[in-house]
Design a protein around this nucleic acid. Structure first.
Lengths: 333, 333
DNA sequence: AGGTAATAAGAAAGCCTTTTCTGAAAAGAG
DNA sequence: CTCTTTTCAGAAAAGGCTTTCTTATTACCT
């Protein structure tokens, strides 16, 4: 009646060996004579035995599962990273427990706790801010953590990123070189390192080098969604901006469309640079000029780094900066 | 030195009770006097005890984890479903192991096997075709399975969908009513039920009712990516199509852009209807006319259905059809 | 051939919970 | 105040595997 499962014990009995031997065969331990190995494998095949990963996890203290905390799978930026993560994870025989956090600090902590309860071998975290609480949890558990597309100024845990400061500076410089003086900058909360520190520094540095005065009105905060594009564009116009650097592609599409819907010619009358090079940037007309981040690779490298950490291998660097460049597409001259 | 963990045994000792009692407290079993419950909870708090989910899983034969097989997280259609799945899963205290399959039959089977090895309590499958091998695995394991946005003509397992046949028929009729006779239809492999049977039937039915002859040249197969849009559009033109029904939004954007890039006026010279109502359909200019599928809900309902199956609750229906409608946006007159 | 080293495989403990079975104490009934 | 019922909590088995410790066997030397 019950989910009648075949255990290692059944295999051992049928093959006339001990459980230990079956275990060895299953785990590729070389201390097994070829003939017995064959015998065991035959029985495994015949009984269609499938080792119970939960029991293995309990006995070996390894689950071959890593937790992935993602703000929202539906966001192309993050889902692209996630794809890189999963591919490398699969390559190294790990599975991914994926959990959406909505960048909500409470959810993040809660989710992290359930992941740790599930004894994941490692965690990949995506989000913006590492709150104190989160950091505390990270260091309290001995589970390795890697940040993907996320910055921890303290560099306590591993992370894989691009140089946001420089990328933003380059973006602004592109606009300066195109003759702009009123360059706006839009991102999410400026309280976090990635936007508030790195990107903001890049923005300011570019202005300063060009001797353009910093104007608070040109710096906006906004959530990263398509639908607020209208409102953001209105604000940009009101502030007198003639161009903008945006930290999110979906938002950028919203702003672009808002401008187009108002009959503004792009890039002639208004220029836009966005940051993530998600698929979206190629899908608009004109296409969005963007910082080209190696999205898939950020995820892939983060996962690779995590595998090293989980194996306690030597790692040259816990903080990896991947290369980026700016691709001049249709929303800049 | 080692990842020094606190076990239920430590808590029991500190609180001066047995493990059984601690277990009862943790699991909310009422057979505990309030005073002892409090005592135990205090110790749990003090020691910062976190129950080991793997051990629980082994003892209780429940992992509170479900496997989700997805073609590609990076595809907005599927990631939208995934978001619905995860939200409901979280609500019911489940976690999600997410695995990308690329709709590759081998990967699907392999991934399903590792999910079952990990003793997931249930599986949600997204993809197009249920191969025989897959079906065999499904029924061999007693693990409940629900298909999301995926059809199984045999209705062996649970599934949540819309009525693809009718939706396609409606789409075609819209174009017929707009005066078209040369209506193309593009989807992935026609070998699978969802496209080859349901959608195709809808297409044919609409034509037949309007006494338009079925023309093979107008029916194309294509992978679902943006970049093949150019090629597909060329083929459509060659076949003399004046309008098209597409089964994927990314592809639809590709076709739309290809037309626009060639100076074609849309919808004046060419009309397009797409199928998924992913975010993309609102982001193009003109916006894409689309079948509005309740993406999030398909995922959410699928997960809800799965919880019922996992609890062996009575379910009225194992096959759920959600409502849809067609939204006339900018790519149709 | 006798002794040592290397190899192959078994026995059993341990991983951390849940859960069943029992028993002791408290409550209720007459 | 005794006897039955209920409540609360402990002991111990079970869950399926890994891994350490041993031992039996085979191979290798001299």
């Amino acid at each position: 009646m019950d989910k009648q499962t075949i255990t290692i014990y059944d295999v051992a009995r049928e093959a006339g060996v001990s459980m230990a031997t079956v275990s060895r065969v299953v785990n590729g331990n070389p201390n097994v004579k070829p003939t017995t190995r064959k015998k065991v494998l035959d029985v495994i095949d015949r009984l269609d035995y499938r080792p119970n990963a939960v029991a293995r996890g309990l006995a070996s203290k390894k689950t071959t599962t890593v937790g992935v905390i993602i703000p929202d799978v539906t966001n192309l930026y993050f889902s692209s990273l996630a794809r890189g993560i999963d591919d490398i994870a699969t390559m190294y025989k790990y599975n991914i427990i994926l959990a959406n956090s909505d960048e909500n600090e409470q959810k993040e902590v809660q989710v992290l706790n359930t992941l740790l309860a599930k004894q994941v071998d490692g965690v990949i975290f995506m989000g913006n801010k590492i709150t104190e609480e989160l950091r505390a949890e990270f260091s309290r558990s001995r589970t390795p953590v890697v940040l993907a597309g996320t910055v921890d100024p303290d560099e306590q845990v591993g992370s894989v990123n691009i140089d946001y400061e420089l990328a933003t500076k380059d973006s602004v410089e592109l606009l300066i070189n195109n003759g702009h003086k009123k360059i706006a900058f839009v991102s999410e909360s400026h309280e976090e390192p990635i936007n508030g520190v790195y990107r903001m520094n890049g923005y300011k540095a570019a202005l300063e080098e060009a001797s353009i005065e910093y104007n608070e009105d040109l710096v906006l905060q906004s959530e990263y969604t398509y639908k607020v594009g209208e409102a953001v564009y209105e604000q940009l116009v009101k502030a007198g901006a003639t161009s903008v650097v945006l930290a999110d592609d979906e938002l950028a599409v919203g702003v672009l469309n808002a401008a187009l819907d108002r009959g503004v010619s792009i890039p002639e009358d208004f220029e836009i640079v966005t940051s993530n090079n998600s698929k979206l940037t190629a899908m608009t007309r004109p296409q969005l000029t963007t910082v080209v981040q190696p999205l898939y690779d950020i995820g892939a490298v983060a996962m690779r780094l995590l595998t090293k950490l989980m194996n306690k291998e030597e790692t040259d660097e816990k903080t990896v900066k991947l290369p980026y460049h700016i691709e001049n597409k249709g929303t800049t001259k």
